[in-house]
Simulated scan of single mutants.
Amino acid sequence: MKIATDELITDLMKRTRKCLAKGEQLRDLPEAALNLKQNETSWSALECLEHLNLYGRFYIPELSKRVAEARAGSEPVFKSGKLGNYFANSMLPKDKLNKMKTFKNMNPLNSRLNKDQVIAEFLEQQQELLRLLEHARKISLNKTKTSISISKWIKLKLGDTFRFVIYHNQRHLVQAERDL
């Protein structure tokens, strides 16, 4: 995938603002509604948000570190890497979400969750993503590499990592809405 860098960042910021708005809407719902489940092995809407928070606890500091360490100088075009493009595209929400296994340490199933804490953390993470995306306008999304949560040996381009995280957020917000 090739895309103008500014166009990519603008798209990712738009998607993140939508995630932020959905999170704010969820904040207004009763806790009982947010804890409803379709069955005992599915996640509630609140568990979907906690899953995103768990990933955010890894990716937000990783993105912050890489953005802060990057030298100034962006390119006009972002060219996705093969692996990064695959990971990002696999997270895009689809009409019928394909089920994926999650790692045990990222699985909030049957967790005791505080609605206010979970939603507040999610909203803070979305605000931080917006801040990082704004800073990313000044650096290389191609040359700056990030670690990923499943392996310290695999590195993705910064642009692909942003895409993965934000598409993943969208995917689970669609799931959360379906659970309500």
Rank of each mutant, 00 (worst) to 15 (best):
E75F: 12
L97Y: 08
F103W: 12
N98W: 11
E121H: 08
K104R: 06
H168W: 01
I154C: 07
N169I: 07
I119N: 02
A72I: 12
L20W: 15
Q38E: 14
L123Y: 04
A33C: 09
I139K: 01
D11H: 15
L46F: 06
L8A: 05
L52R: 01
K145R: 14
K79E: 15
Q25H: 12
A21I: 12
R163E: 06
F58Q: 01
K96L: 13
N53S: 00
L29A: 01
E62H: 02
D116Y: 03
Q170G: 13
Q38L: 14
E177F: 00
K104V: 00
E24H: 07
E124W: 07
G73E: 08
K82R: 13
F103S: 06
S42Y: 00
K2Q: 15
D116E: 11
D116H: 05
A120T: 11
D6R: 12
G159P: 02
L8Q: 06
L130T: 04
K99N: 08
Q38H: 15
N85K: 13
L49T: 03
E128H: 09
A88K: 05
R71Y: 08
L173A: 11
A68H: 11
L129G: 01
P76I: 10
P93L: 02
L29S: 00
L83M: 07
Q25C: 10
L63R: 03
I139D: 02
D95K: 14
I119S: 00
S74I: 10
Q127E: 13
N107Q: 01
R163F: 05
R15H: 10
R137L: 05
K157N: 05
L113E: 04
S64T: 14
V118N: 00
T146E: 07
L92G: 08
E47Y: 06
H135L: 13
R112C: 09
E47R: 03
L36N: 13
T10C: 10
C48A: 06
I154F: 10
I148W: 09
K145P: 11
L83I: 11
P30Q: 00
E128K: 09
G23V: 02
A4K: 15
G56A: 06
W153E: 12
S147M: 14
Q126E: 08
N105C: 07
P76K: 14
T16L: 06
K79P: 10
D160Q: 04
A136N: 04
S140H: 01
K65T: 15
A33E: 02
I60Y: 02
K37Y: 03
T10Y: 13
R71S: 15
L123H: 03
H51P: 01
A68S: 14
S80T: 09
T161F: 03
K99E: 14
E75H: 12
K79M: 13
S90A: 15
L12P: 04
G159A: 02
T161E: 05
G81V: 07
Y55I: 02
S140G: 01
L156H: 04
N142K: 01
F103C: 05
C48Q: 04
R131V: 11
D6C: 10
L141C: 00
K37H: 05
R178S: 12
I148M: 10
K145C: 10
D179S: 13
V165Y: 04
K82I: 15
L49H: 03
T102D: 00
K14S: 14
E24R: 08
F103T: 04
Q170W: 10
V77M: 15
R71P: 07
L156E: 02
